[in-house]
């Protein structure tokens, strides 16, 4: 079951990569993921800067998912949403930080 799902996910990801024209990057990641735990594009992020998503033991999805569960972070409701939501507004402090 897991292998079927993992193949389906890989195909889905590959299609998204083709749409964004970065198929090469994902093909390489997919090949890597067959041999080792998944290393996302953010694997080189330094931990002292906030996040260590490239942890060898746990994938980015697991780490982030665990953290959100622990915080009981709220989403848009109790069920999954489909279709693009309205984009978020800009926050003034982000703009100030971005330009400083």
């Amino acid at each position: 079951m897991n292998s079927t799902r993992s193949i389906a996910r890989r195909r889905g990801l590959r299609m998204a990569a083709q749409v964004a024209s970065i198929a090469g990057v994902v093909a390489a990641s997919a090949a890597l993921s067959q041999a080792a735990p998944a290393r996302p594009a953010t694997a080189n992020i330094a931990p002292q800067e906030g996040v260590m998503l490239g942890d060898e033991g746990k994938g980015a999805a697991d780490q982030l998912g665990d953290a959100i569960r622990v915080r009981n972070a709220s989403g848009c409701g109790c069920s999954p949403c489909w279709g693009p939501p309205a984009p978020p507004p800009m926050r003034a402090e982000l703009l100030e930080e971005g330009l400083s």
């Binding site: 990801l13 990569a17 990057v25 990641s29 998944a38 594009a41």
Partner: peptide, 13 residues
């Protein structure tokens, strides 16, 4: 997992 992999592996790059 599909969501996180797509954001980190496709959207960010």
């Amino acid at each position: 997992r599909v969501f996180v992999d797509t954001i980190t592996g496709v959207t960010i790059p």
